[in-house]
Amino acid sequence: MQTVTRTAAHGPATASEPFLVIDGVTKVYPTPTGPYTVLDGIDLEVAEGEFVCVIGHSGCGKSTLLDMVSGFREPTSGEVRVQGERIRDPGPERMVVFQNYSLLPWLSARDNIALAVNNVFPHLKRNGQARTIVDSHLEMVGLSEAAHKKPASLSGGMKQRVSIARALALQPKLLILDEPFGALDPITREELQEELLRIWADQKVTVLMITHDIDEALFLADRVVLMTNGPAATIGEILPLPFPRPRERARLMEMPEYYDLRNHALDFLFRRYAHDVD
């Protein structure tokens, strides 16, 4: 494995630096009772095109970590780099999809996507390319028929499809998913997981996803990052998953390794880092 030196952070992108580098990131918040360390010394490297899931109990700082990758927050120390560039602000090359969809309720599915595309690529609007991008992304998530509908008349699964389409329409290099399927019923969740894998394989985008669901992580990821509990949460373990792709859920259930890894993750989350507070 390559060693990332601090100097690389300040110099130009080195050819061999991994796509995403979370480099010694610590986040401390001031509180009336003194400084509160949420994350303490997170090191993670993600290769281009990789699918990484982060799992941990609530309060383990997962969302804070995503915020620093997306650029909504800055680390107290350490830094996050994408392709060698230090992240300081949010940007369309790193798109976030949240559990609550964050769609504008007065706009149709199409207009929600179009608004984002027109904002980020104003030059495309003039020659009609924006329309093509919006349409192809609606089609990608199977929503061409429902394009004219407003969020209120879409199911939870459809709304999340719109958010995913909107994020990908901006052609990000990194897709950041914050528990995107947490609010969906199990059938819809499984359908969307399958769809997400298909899209990820087609678009060759790098994915960093937070989840609470061990089976979801095992089905989707190349590697699963297990977080310890806060305060001062760290990466407890990283599990590389040996399952071949394309993945099929039923086939995964037949693999002895699936149960080994599932039990290992359960042991981590419910024994070694059990969490009493809810």
């Binding site: 799992i55 609470h212 809810d278």
Partner: peptide, 10 residues
Amino acid sequence: ALDALTRGNL
């Protein structure tokens, strides 16, 4: 209404 891990504790 709760996430999978919190469910586990409850």
